[in-house]
Structures are given as C-alpha cells and as structure tokens.
Amino acid sequence: MKKYFTAITIYWQRALTYRFSIVAYRIGEVTETLVLILLWTAIYEGQELIRGFTLEEMVTYVLMGTLFSVATRNFGTGLIAREIKDGILSTLLVKPINYLAYDFFRGLGRRTFVSGFSVLSQLIVMLFFLDTLILNLDFKTNALILVMLILTLLIESLLSYLLGLIAFWTDEVDGIFETFGRIRQFFAGGYFPLSLLPLTFLQISFALPFAYSFFVPAQLYLGKMDFATGVKGLGVQVIWIFILYAIIQFVWKRGLRRYEGIGI
C-alpha cells in the first residue's frame, strides 16, 4: 500500500516543478467564469426572471457550479495516453504495481495543487460578487453536496483513466478528448443550467454521470432541487462507479492484449 502513497508525494513534487503553468491555467479559468457572468448580466438587462432564475441565482449558479467543477476535475487522460503511446507503460508493466491504483493515487497528488489553486482563484472571484452571491448555510444540503462531490471525484478519475486507454487503439486521441470534454461540459450544465432546456435533456443528464459535477450540486445549493432527488443522485453516481470500473477492466484487458500484440 505504501507504494501508492509514495506516488502521491512524487506527484506533489512534480506539480511544484510546474508552478508557473498551474497559476497560468487559472487565469483562463477565471476569465471564463467572468465572461459567463458578464453574458448573463447582459441577458438579464430589463428582465427579472428567466425560466425561474433571478440574476442573483444565475450568478450564484455560475460561481458555485464552477467551484464544484474545478474542485473535482481530472486531467489525467493525456498523461495516460502519453505513457501508452511512448511505451512508458512497459516500464510500469514489469514492476509489481497496479497501474489503475497507481494512476488513481498519483492523480490525487497531481491534482492537489491544481485543484487547490483553482478553488482559491474561484473563491477570490466570489469576493467581488458578494452582493449578488446567495449564501446557503443549510448543513444537511451542504453535507449532501460534499458527499456528491467526493463521488464525482472518483467518477472523474475513472472517466479520465478510461478515456486515456483509448490510446491503446489510436495515436490520435486529442480530437476525441476535446470532443468528449465539450459534450461533458454541456451535460454537466457548465455552459448554462440544463433546466433551461426541454425536460428530456434534463432526464438524460440525470442518468449520465456529468451533471453531478456542476448542475445537480449547484441546484441543490440554490434550493431548486429537493433533498430526496439529491440522494437519488448519489445512487446514480454509485451505479456509475461500478459501471465505469467494469468497463475499465474490460477495456484494459483488451487494450493490453493489443499493446502486447503490437509491441508499442
């Protein structure tokens, strides 16, 4: 077990060598949040309510949702793809270590600083919108959100790992990642609240794992979704964890057979 914890500390150190990049990326993130708020403020000009959202609620949706999303995101896909493509995986395959477990733990190390900085920069943005931001201090709701985010963290890890495994079949993975990222962002409600769309979209996104990183916890926070629905969401997440794990096992076995076969 110790080896997996060492993987965390190794990736802490590695993250520190990329201090500048970590800060630089955050500038883009913060800009995106500000652009979304600017856009909504413009749309709300002269209107009180859009589909049941006040401007305050919409700004809170953007700020809180982004906070939840940046805290749970995982960018490990590219790393896995690179390790497969460059054959670095070979050096790991011959060692007594489990690649999935290794990737999960190093992911924790890798993201500690990135997510930390993301959360920090979003909190700073929030300071400028304190007048608009709706505060919800209900313990029960916040506890539910916290559990949901922990499950999201796990789901995001599994998803990024699974996507990385595509590199077993093709060298050209960037297009797939990019497209997947955008579709996920849409179903997560990252562009706009999914409740602005016809009900079908909402139902689909409830069944998918993505909405639990943004839309669902943000709605819970705003009190626009009741507690029971949120708990049901946890159930959906747990089911997804099992499904993703099973798919990963299957894809890993097939991919490895190909890796062995091609002799990358």
Binding site: K3, R14, T17, S90, T91, V94, P96
Partner: peptide, 30 residues
Amino acid sequence: QFSIVMGQKNQLFQDLPPIETFAFNKDIYG
C-alpha cells in the same frame, strides 16, 4: 526478481531528481 533496462525508454521521472525514482522503487519492490 528481475529488471529490464531499455536504452530508449526511461523509468526515471523526468521532472524530478533520480533519487525520487529510487525512493519510489524502494516502495514498489518493498
């Protein structure tokens, strides 16, 4: 009980000093 060294594939963590890879291997191999 064995090792393989491939001239064109590194097991060293490129961003870190070699001593970190050594320490990691210590834990991997127990």
